[in-house]
Design a protein around this nucleic acid. Sequence first.
DNA 1: CTGAAAGCGCTTACAG
DNA 2: CTGAAAGCGCTTACAG
Lengths: 340, 340
Amino acid sequence: MKEKATSFDIAHLAGVSQSTVSRALNNSSLVNQETRERVQRIARELNYKVDKNASNLRLQKSSTIALLLFEDPTSDDSMINPFFLAMLGSITRACAQANYDLLVSFQNLEDDWHAEYEDSNKADGIILLGYGDYTDYQNKVAQLESQGTHFVRWGAPDEKHPGISIGCDNFQGGESITQHLISQGKTTFAFIGDNGDHAPEFKARFTGYYRTLLAHGLDKNSSQFDAISTEDAGSEAIRGLIEAGELPQAIVCASDLIAMGALRALRQAKIKVPDDVAVVGYDNIAVSAYTTPALTTVQQNTKLAGELLVSALLKAINNEEVDDYLMPAEVIVRQSCGSQ
Amino acid sequence: MKEKATSFDIAHLAGVSQSTVSRALNNSSLVNQETRERVQRIARELNYKVDKNASNLRLQKSSTIALLLFEDPTSDDSMINPFFLAMLGSITRACAQANYDLLVSFQNLEDDWHAEYEDSNKADGIILLGYGDYTDYQNKVAQLESQGTHFVRWGAPDEKHPGISIGCDNFQGGESITQHLISQGKTTFAFIGDNGDHAPEFKARFTGYYRTLLAHGLDKNSSQFDAISTEDAGSEAIRGLIEAGELPQAIVCASDLIAMGALRALRQAKIKVPDDVAVVGYDNIAVSAYTTPALTTVQQNTKLAGELLVSALLKAINNEEVDDYLMPAEVIVRQSCGSQ
DNA sequence: CTGAAAGCGCTTACAG
DNA sequence: CTGAAAGCGCTTACAG
């Protein structure tokens, strides 16, 4: 393995000072064009690359963004929520476009919380995805804020949370999907998903759902069953619902993963979807188009979300004013709700 | 935003020299225990974190691994192959466990090829995932090798490729799935997927498929249709197959994505799977369990793959001897082949 | 347009 | 056990 070339090596070969090499490589207008071209040519020949550690140290920045993914503590360790994977993809692309590197870290509950990315100058800012344990999450966000760390979080704006948030309107998503079911003539409902303060996204979806029923005078025809965002929890909740007695006309699941489990449990119980009961999900993960029947769901635009998260963070890093942004959620109609 | 504390600030507060602070924080045994504890306490109070750029610069390493994902140039820009996303997840976990950071980069064809991660000291080594354009890929691998970069690639060992490879046995996977179909009594076959030198993984799967037919004297009963790894290509190929005339008893797809498209095209043509024709895929992506019928496919163990890639790279970085590794591929039987 | 010099914040060989 | 000093490889204010 060859020794790595430094700017001094190039300076020597080009017969100029090291300062001039640095200027030439940074395309400074201060340097003679002929000199600049010569230096750049030599740099290319030597396969020279600026040492990022040195340049970052000098410039006190890193051109790197850290992505922290907080997973649901109870979710299967080997499986990452497909929705976050999709987000990861779009964030990666957006970073590349902005010429930033992306440092990825999955935070498990057991891990030490290390938000040291910015403190240690490894990253100029942080994107937070997911909640993990919500109480824990709030502490972490508060800590980031108090340290003056630049960060953006995926989620709804919230007075309890400082910092910039980019999210998708879970309340409106809950409304829209419920509205769709009502317009299909459904009159009795069940909501499958946690509805507590520890799961704010699900709670907002539930609230949108419930308010819509209320507006139509259907709020008495609703039940709710707890479930975290896994298939197994969905199946479990459906078994509870079946045991509880009468089947509703429509089952609204707080996530696609829950809906997958619901479809499975219903199939096992020989209950036909959508003939006996309509089922809808939330997230529009890739799988949802392929279930039997294909799942009607609510889409969050992950491509746009990634772009917004990155551009908002970059603005924050440059100390520009940034507003929270709430994207609209869009109903994707497939077969599981009986519309088609 | 507060100024970041440096080791000098801590030295000042602790009444010791900056060298001692550095030693104390690195748990050097050279420092008095009482002093060490005092320094560490003050560091904690100030929320001090070692500046990674400075320490990396000094140590000439980065404790960071770069993951380069080469996508199929023709695949939909907004969609990342779910198989790679799964790999990404397991690599991220493995890195975290080894206390390495992970820099993620998606390389599009249009992008400049920049393997400068190690050259610029941003990463100590590189993991290559995917091929993109294969000819291009070979040049890049050769370039990495000639520069003495530490890298590991996902794929089969190959004399034409220098460097360490970790992969899954595509030849054996092709054999196993074909063997399974033959044991189900199938006697006529079609293979959907490219079979050229630009797609070595598909080619190996095809070769395993074909050799198995040959061994059973069934090689005359086989046709092959080109397709890259997308749904659309799969649908397109199936339409070609249908137009070509007689339907085989089994369709072997070179990837699950192709198989998805195949199922779609067959459904549109009112051809029943598995009653009229068996269909099998390759990869066991999450979606494959949810298609109708659920897809029989070949699994590559992504969790193990991620761990092996990371540990092999770490060994290479430490200049230890590393061997190529070829994982076995496992047939996952579901409904689409008619076995259940 | 160019060069000599300072300094970013660390780690560690050297001297005590 | 501790401190003073060198040096990792850059960028840029300063002087010319």
